[in-house]
Design a protein around this nucleic acid. Structure first.
Lengths: 132, 132
DNA sequence: CTTGACCTTCCAGTAACTGGAAACCCTATG
DNA sequence: CATAGGGTTTCCAGTTACTGGAAGGTCAAG
């Protein structure tokens, strides 16, 4: 399929898809006419990239995650270690997102009576615990 | 407190904190000697920025979220509408993160027997459903 | 056979940092 | 008091990850 279709199906703009090819994240076939020709596996990679990038993972992290299943040379113990490290990070992100959701929900629910939303959410804004 | 302490407590590098000041996300006091002087409220803002940025929200989204409780002029109906829109986005992100976690968990659990991790995770990699 | 929607490459610009230089401030120690 | 260190200041340049636009090739429809 052409880049436009791949863009539609992955949720990424064509520009970004070409950029990902430039930096070696995927290498679609080329048709006779020189057009890029994307497989459904390519679209899967692109959708994965769209999702993980929008969740705050860097391009290099995405590259590593993609290599987990794409690189046939990689040792499975290696795969497992990397996957586990990322799992911990994902769990942390999940907790932070849930905290953010609770904060916003509180803001939407409890600050609609008066004109100034200066209820004590501010103190809980950053959640608890320490980073790093 | 000085920028170094604020950096420690927020999880953001001093460079980034100064940058956030440049683009108007916060305006700490200045001490006699010209050093920036951060309040605990400033640190809360910074921690909020650190978290929401790492979860894939843009700086402009963060600015809007910060204004929800910081802007005394804002109408509460307005606050409520914006908060609700962001809530929907957060719920979507939560679902995608959970999907990513499941995929990685599967990879870690089921692909450790043989040397090549080419189990059929690839098909589920991008999750289901369509973007946009 | 032309028009419009796609595609190509290339180059420049933007967003959000990030690194480094030069100089100022503060505390501690000789 | 001098000075050595570490932290801070501003400024300017570089990086990452796109994003916009120009100039031109391709293709299906009318």
């Amino acid at each position: 399929m052409n880049i436009g279709t791949a863009a539609e199906r992955s949720g990424l703009p064509p520009k970004t898809i070409r950029y990902y090819e430039d930096i070696g994240l995927l290498t679609p076939d080329r048709s006779e006419n020189g057009y890029r020709d994307y497989s459904t596996a390519d679209v899967h990679r692109l959708r994965f990239l769209q999702r993980s990038r929008s969740l705050g993972f860097s391009v290099e992290e995405c590259r590593q995650l993609l290599s987990l299943y794409g690189d046939k040379e990689r040792e499975s113990a290696d795969v497992k270690a990397i996957a586990k490290a990322k799992l911990a990070e994902i769990d942390r992100k999940l907790a932070e997102l849930a905290g953010l959701r609770d904060m916003l929900r509180h803001l939407a629910d409890h600050c609609n009576g008066d004109d100034r939303p200066d209820c004590p959410i501010i103190d809980g804004l950053a959640g608890s615990g320490t980073v790093q």
